[in-house]
Design a protein around this nucleic acid. Sequence first.
DNA 1: AAGATGACGTGCT
DNA 2: GAGCACGCCATCT
Length: 114
Amino acid sequence: MTKLTPMERIWFIVNLIPKGAVLPYGTVADLAGLPGRARYVSRALKLAPQSLALPWHRVINSQGKISFTNNSEPFRIQQQLLRLDGIEVNAGKISLSQYKWQPDIATLVMTLPF
DNA sequence: AAGATGACGTGCT
DNA sequence: GAGCACGCCATCT
């Protein structure tokens, strides 16, 4: 089993988020074994190689909103990608809490390669 | 080298 | 709810 770097673990988790679901930066950090490191998740996504084709748009902040500055270029792109996933977004805010994916932490963690 | 920055979160007013 | 203050810490100036 390859030893993954903290950043690779974040990419791994993000890649698991299914279409139609979203997950907060903080939760991704927790699952990657980096509690309290939500900011590191944003850095990791920014530095992620395009070749990974990660569903980065499914990562939002704990307020259920898009974290890019309002109406910026990336903000609009993320909003559109979420809508293509079938998620309802209004002014950067995910409308229904049911879209928030709550994985069974205990079960998921046991399947992780780290 | 040192200070500012940021795709965050939590707690408190 | 809306601000504001902190804690966080790799990157960027």
